[in-house]
Amino acid sequence: MSEPTTISSKGQVTVPRDVRERLGLQAGDKIAWSMLSNGTIVLRPKTRRLVDLVGMLTQPGQPGVSVDEMRLPE
């Protein structure tokens, strides 16, 4: 578990290194905060890199489609 962090006068916090590493966060990445009904706070990375999106639109058993196959005929 990470050490407690301090909120700055501007409302900023530093995400502890072990949390950044575990979530794969880098400088400039965005995160989303959600509060559950029991008061638990959930922090989720919102920045996606192109490589993270590979395969998201395929379904099991569905053949892949190349970029050329996606292009409309002219």
Rank of each mutant, 00 (worst) to 15 (best):
P63C: 02
P16M: 01
G61I: 01
S2G: 11
R22C: 06
P60V: 01
V54G: 05
R71G: 10
G28R: 11
V54T: 11
V13M: 13
L36M: 05
R49K: 10
M35L: 11
R17Y: 14
G61F: 05
R22V: 15
T40K: 10
E74K: 14
K30V: 07
V65C: 08
R44A: 08
K10R: 01
R48N: 09
L72Q: 09
A27P: 06
S34H: 11
T40A: 02
I7V: 11
M70H: 05
G11E: 00
P60T: 05
Q12L: 10
L50T: 15
G61T: 02
E21P: 03
R71E: 13
D52Y: 03
A27V: 12
L50N: 00
L23C: 03
T58R: 08
V19F: 08
S9A: 15
D29C: 12
V42R: 02
S9Q: 06
V13C: 07
V19N: 02
I7S: 01
K46N: 02
T40L: 09
Q12C: 07
M56E: 07
R44E: 05
S2C: 08
V19T: 13
M70A: 13
R71V: 14
G28Y: 08
Q62P: 00
S34R: 13
D18T: 04
A32V: 08
D68A: 12
R22I: 15
D68E: 08
Q62T: 13
R48G: 07
D52K: 05
A27R: 14
L53H: 05
I41R: 10
E21I: 08
V51D: 00
S2I: 12
T5R: 08
L25W: 07
D18A: 06
T5L: 08
